[in-house]
Amino acid sequence: MIRQLNWRRYGLVAVTLPVVALVFLAAALAPVIAPYDPFELDVLVMLQGPGENHLLGTDELGRDILSRVIHASRVSIVVGLVAVAIGATGGVLIGVLAAHFGGAVDSVLMRFMEIVFCFPAILLAVILMANLGTSVLNAMLAIGIIFIPGFARLTRAVAQTVQRQPFLEAAICLGVGPLRLVTREILPNVIGPVLVEAAVAFSYAVLLESALSFLGLGAQPPEPSWGNMINTGRGFIDQAPWISLAPGAALFITVFSFNLLGDGLRDVLDPKLHD
């Protein structure tokens, strides 16, 4: 009985964590495991279907798709990590401040956050990218900013719950200062929910980055990214569907497994939800 329960609780993480690890590994070891140079042109093997020499085929310039898909994972992972870091840092800071000060500070901050939250994310990202200039660095920044309201709201909600707990009152009675109160009492309680949100945000960041690249506003060719590969493949979809299929599948698997990982983390960190 207990065994079964544990499997229920940890199952999703156990299944998705290896996939996620594999994506990270591919990104980290890209130059080692990619069979070809992702930039190497070979006009003799243009638009070749998946086969012995090129497992996932070649694109319109004879570049190896598999190698490009592997290398492109780097852009996605880095953008995802940095954007989530920006969003989480900014959001947690604002959320803690709002919860701590309450009153006018709280309402102004959260009202502002709510308005930003209302914006269609992709629209805001597209506009920011258009003006900051199309580069991977700016993509991280644009996507990171979009995540701030979500993390802020989450953090504020959790921090407010914590502030009502008796142990916090006890800490205040003991004369614990505000900074220590935040770092020792509030933040440790915030980390769990923020982690769950981070996994989901990461998958969304990867999705947004590829959407930007797809529109030509993210990673610039010849640098491979899943988004710009799918876009290039669109022009050859009739004769060489693998050009779009392969990066799309990689993107989809990454996003899907991160979302499932988020669900799994929720099961692990908040077992109440399962009862």
Binding site: L207, D238, L245, F252, F256
Partner: peptide
Amino acid sequence: VTTLATLFGSTPNFWLATLLIWFFSL
């Protein structure tokens, strides 16, 4: 159903669009 929901939500819409055009149109 929950897994299916995650699956739907994880699909890049522009990729799905490309696949739909490829299959149903071309």
